[in-house]
Design a protein around this nucleic acid. Structure first.
Lengths: 100, 100
DNA sequence: CGTGTAAGGAATTCTGACACG
DNA sequence: CGTGTAAGGAATTCTGACACG
C-alpha cells in the first residue's frame, strides 16, 4: 500500500492540514463522506487521501451542496463508470458496440 | 513537500508500523538519531521517512552497533559526500582535478 | 442542515526515575 | 548501553447533547 493511503493521522493533525474543525470532520464521517479507521481505543485514523477528500468535500459544501447530494452524485458517477467499463469489455471481446 | 516527509504521526502509530516500543523510539531521539517535530502540547510527530529511518537504526542496533557509532559513521559519510560534491563542482568549473 | 460549544470520561502521550546487565 | 516498567500529570480524542438558523 502507498503512503498516501495509509491511515495514520489523528484528527488534530487533520484539522491542521485541512483547516477544518473536528466537528466538521466528524460530521462528514457521520454523513458517510469519509471513512477513517480506528485504533483499539476508538481514536480515528486518517490517510493523506482522506485529507484530499475532506478538502474536496468542504469546497463543495461551501459551494452550496448538501452532504447527501455529494454522496448521491458520486454514487451515480461511479455507477456510470462501471457500466462504461463493462460496455468497453464487451466491445473488446465481441465488438457488440460499433462506432459509426 | 512530499507526503513522505510530512511529520504527521503520533508515536503510537509509529510503534505499530515499526514494531518498536515507545521507549526505543524516544531513546533513539535522545541519542540524536531521529528528529520528530512537536505539537504545541509536546506530542511528538513523525513522518514516513522517520519510520524508514527508525527501522534502519533498529537493524543496525540489532547488528551490534552502538547509537553513537551509527551517528558518527553517518556524519562522516555526509562529510565525505560534501567534499566529493565540492570537488566535482571545482572540476566542472576549472578542470582542476584531471583524470589520467 | 451544518456547525459551535460545554461536559465528562477514556485513551494517548509525556517526563523523570529506578532497574537490569 | 539499550530497554522495560510503574507513576502521575498533561494533552488529545471521544460521544451525546443542546443551540442556532
Amino acid at each position: 500500500m502507498n503512503y498516501r493511503e495509509k491511515k495514520v493521522m489523528t484528527i488534530g493533525i487533520v484539522c491542521e492540514l485541512t483547516g477544518l474543525s473536528e466537528r466538521q470532520i466528524r460530521y462528514y464521517e457521520e454523513r458517510k463522506l469519509i471513512f477513517p479507521e480506528r485504533t483499539n481505543g476508538k481514536t480515528r485514523k486518517y490517510s493523506f487521501t482522506d485529507i484530499e477528500r475532506l478538502v474536496e468535500v468542504a469546497e463543495k459544501i461551501e459551494d452550496g451542496w448538501r452532504t447527501h447530494e455529494i454522496r448521491e452524485k458520486e454514487r451515480k458517477v461511479t455507477e456510470q463508470q462501471r457500466s462504461d467499463l463493462i460496455r468497453g469489455q464487451l466491445n473488446a471481446a465481441f465488438g457488440l458496440y460499433k462506432k459509426r
